[in-house]
Structure formats: C-alpha cells, structure tokens
C-alpha cells in the first residue's frame, strides 16, 4: 500500500513539474509566435503588392485591413464592415443583405485593440444591440501609396484535392489580378503541390475582371515561350520580352498542371470566386460609405 502512495506521489510530481515548465515556455514563446505570424502575413501581402525580394516597400505604403462580420439579429441577418477612419478611429458600417446601407456605428477601440482578434470581437459586440450576434468572416486589405490607391489583397479558400487550399489574391484598382499566393495547402508533393510554383501562379497575372468571368482550365501543355515569361528566374529574358509574351498569352485559359488537374481547377475556381465576391462587396461598401458620409482612412 505504501508503495502505491509513493508511486502516485512521484508520478503526480513529474506531471506537475512538466506542466509548469510547459506553461512557462508557452508564456515566453506565445507572443513571439503571434508576432512572427503577423510578420509572415505582412510579408505575403507586401509581396503580392510587388514589394519584397530585395525591393523594399516605400515609406508611404499604407495597408488598411477591413474586417467583415456577419451579424445575426433576431429578425434579420446583416453584414458589418469594420472600417478605419481618417481621424484614427474605427466604425462598424452595417449593410443589409440586399446592399442597402443601415448605419455607421463608431467603435470605442484603437489600433492595438483591433489587431487582436479577441478584443476586436468584444469591441464589435459592444457596439451592436444586445440581442445581436456577430461572427467574424474575413479580412480584406486595402493598400494605398500616399493618397493614391495601389490595390487590394483579398483572402479566399477553396476545396482542393485533399483538404482546403487557402489563397490570397492581389488586385489593382481596376480589379485586374496582379498576383496570387497559396498560403496553406496539403496537396501531394510533386503533383498538386506545384500550385505553389511561380510558373503556375503567374498565369493569373494580368487577368482582368472580364477574362476572369469566363476563365477555364485547359488540359494542354504549357507553351514553351509562355514558360519563359512565367518563370523569369530560370531564363535570361528581358522585362520587355516578358511583357510581350505575357501580353500574347493574356487571354489564354489556365494551363493545368501535369497530373494535377483537380488542384489546378480548384485554385482557378477559388480565384474566380474570391474576386467576384470581393468586387461585389467592395462596390457596395464604397457606395454605402459615400451615402453615409463615412470618412474612411483609405
């Protein structure tokens, strides 16, 4: 009997000691992890906007996140956009499902509060009536260079070959695709995983809204001259040549990856859907802000 007590005590002691050490390490590393994740996100966004890789982002590049919430009130469902304002404040602009503006509610929050998901959700909840429930949907990024609009970065998700593929699309002010990035995927290495390669991603560059509407995936080999333009790191083509070739193939459909048609189609549909939804929503948001006279920071 005595031995059992001894064993129990020593096992408990080991567990408690381990838990304490882990707790301490967690407390030390959690902030760094969050910060690094933010940094990766920022780098991805800047990379999509054409900076990074030795090209430093200019001082006056400003990126404004706009969060979207789905608000369920007892009678109706509406959308709430968290918009940063000119005077450093924030407002929750609510819109009904048909796109009619409802109101702009000022928020009691600062940049730090908005950056953290937990405090942001609390701030949004506080601004809404008591019986409303707000669920976070996604964040789009509006980029300005000085006072001029540089473009948008929009996140999207699509069902890939195995699990979900998370991607980001950057658009210029005319909603032409300027680049895509795969942020998370679990496709097969060597096959579907090739969606992360430049020669696939760059095929989306320059596709306008019109082209995107009818964009398909074709099971044809990638033309060799196009490959030169898509993967400039591997060839010695000049900027002019690349521009010319890209221009020539601008209206082409997306060439499927060898052995990974489903993954290619998934990404293409994901990009199309993401852009379509964003353009629709951003149009409404811009109208609403004009009508309600919301002075957005961007």
């Amino acid at each position: 009997m005595k031995e059992i007590i001894k064993i129990t005590i020593s096992l408990t002691a080991i567990c408690v000691a381990a838990a304490l050490i882990l707790g301490a390490v967690f407390a030390k590393t959690e902030d760094v992890r969050k910060k690094n994740q933010e940094k990766i996100k920022e780098e991805t966004i800047q990379g999509l906007l054409g900076f990074g890789h030795g090209k430093k982002a200019p001082e006056d590049l400003k990126i404004f996140p706009v969060q979207r919430y789905v608000v369920s009130e007892p009678k109706a469902t509406l959308l709430g956009y968290l918009v940063p304002l000119k005077d450093k404040g924030y407002a929750l602009v609510t819109v009904d499902l048909a796109g009619k503006p409802l109101k702009a509610i000022p928020l009691k929050a600062d940049a730090a509060k908005i950056a953290d998901a937990g405090t942001r959700d609390a701030a949004v909840k506080e601004a809404l009536p008591k019986d409303a429930k707000a669920t976070y949907a996604d964040t789009v990024y509006v980029a300005n260079l000085g006072d001029k609009r540089l473009g948008y970065v929009v996140p999207g998700v699509t069902q890939g070959f195995k699990t979900f593929v998370n991607l980001m699309v950057s658009l210029n002010p005319d909603f032409t695709v300027t680049g895509i990035e795969i942020t998370k995927s679990e496709e097969d290495p060597g096959l579907g995983d090739e969606i992360k390669r430049d020669y696939f991603k760059n095929q989306f560059k320059g596709k306008t809204l019109e082209i995107l509407k009818t964009l398909k995936v074709v099971k044809e080999p990638l033309p060799t001259d196009y490959l030169v333009a898509l993967d400039p790191s591997k060839s010695k083509a000049t900027q002019d040549q690349i521009g010319q070739i890209s221009e020539k193939h601008l209206k082409d459909d997306i060439y499927a990856l060898t052995g990974a048609t489903i993954s290619s189609r998934a990404v293409t549909n994901g990009v199309k859907e993401t852009v379509r939804k964003f353009v629709y929503r951003f149009g409404i948001l811009a109208d609403v802000m004009k009508q309600e006279n919301v002075q957005a920071a961007f």
């Binding site: 050490i21 882990l22 690094n36």
Partner: peptide, 26 residues
C-alpha cells in the same frame, strides 16, 4: 513507473521544442 515517467519527460521536451520552433521559425 519508469516507462510512463520516460514518456512524460520526452513529451515535455517535444512540447518545448515544438513551441520554440513554431514561434521562431514558422
């Protein structure tokens, strides 16, 4: 109880390494 004790020791250090790597080299 040596086997459970070893498992806990290993799990402890794995968790530590896991957290450190996820923080510093995501």
């Amino acid at each position: 109880i040596r086997i459970p004790a070893y498992v806990i020791v290993i799990a402890l250090w794995v968790s530590v390494i896991d957290m450190v790597l996820s923080a510093y080299d995501p």
